[in-house]
């Protein structure tokens, strides 16, 4: 464990708490893409259920349980508790165009052609593109509540911080995970223009608005 990865995971943890805080305080899930949240459940279930047969560390176990549980709870909040505030008409990204290619990539790029390794690759590829429905919704509405932008900033920072972690591990342990690194670079690149707008508007205390 190194500080980059620790702060990355803490940023991911923070993003979940910010999202839960937003849903609870505004009593709505307006501006949040259900499809992205559902993809995250698929990502966590497909990658973190290895806690059932592998033990890495207490930290690893607790974090995996938390991410699976919290992402399912968020789906419950969106689909049940605050259902009236969910507008599927603006959450229009075709998820099948995302899952298909990821499944194909996982069948090609994996460390071993076994069910668990292909599933792991699928999870990694899915995670890198899971934010797309949310970004498309943002593009469509052209603006977002400030707290939602903080959620996205923390979420984007999570995998962005994994990049220096991978560099650090390459030089200190001589290990590198090409599949995770490639997907992580793509995942972080998708946040580029969001971060640009975020740091030039929200951080200056203005409202988050995409150029019309």
């Amino acid at each position: 464990m190194n500080l980059f990865r620790l702060f990355g995971d803490l940023s991911h943890l923070a993003s979940i708490f910010i999202l839960l805080h937003k849903i609870r305080t505004t009593r709505s899930c307006r501006g949040i893409s259900f499809k992205t949240q559902a993809l995250y459940v698929a990502v966590f279930v497909s990658r973190y259920l290895d806690i059932l047969w592998e033990w890495v560390s207490l930290y690893n176990f607790v974090m995996k349980v938390f991410f699976i549980a919290s992402s399912c709870f968020i789906l419950y909040l969106m689909k049940m508790k605050y259902r009236p505030t969910h507008d599927p008409s603006i959450d229009t990204f075709r998820v099948e165009f995302l899952v298909g290619p990821c499944a194909l990539l996982a069948l090609i790029f994996n460390y071993k052609f076994t069910f668990t390794e292909v599933l792991w690759s699928l999870s990694i590829f899915l995670e890198s593109l899971a934010i797309l429905p949310q970004l498309f919704m943002l593009q469509r509405t052209g603006e977002a509540e400030t707290i939602t932008t903080h959620y996205l900033a923390a979420l984007g920072a999570y995998r962005a911080l994994y990049i220096p972690n991978w560099i650090y591990r390459y030089f200190s342990e001589g290990v590198v995970d090409p599949i995770a690194v490639t997907a992580g670079l793509v995942q972080t690149a998708l946040y580029a223009d969001f971060f640009y707008v975020y740091f030039t508007t929200v951080i200056q205390g203005q409202k988050f608005e995409l150029p019309a």
């Binding site: 995971d9 592998e54 890495v56 991410f67 071993k112 792991w120 591990r169 290990v175």
Partner: peptide, 10 residues
């Protein structure tokens, strides 16, 4: 082999 590649990451 690769199968034991760094799986200690989230």
């Amino acid at each position: 082999g690769h199968t034991d590649h760094v799986k200690d990451e989230l």
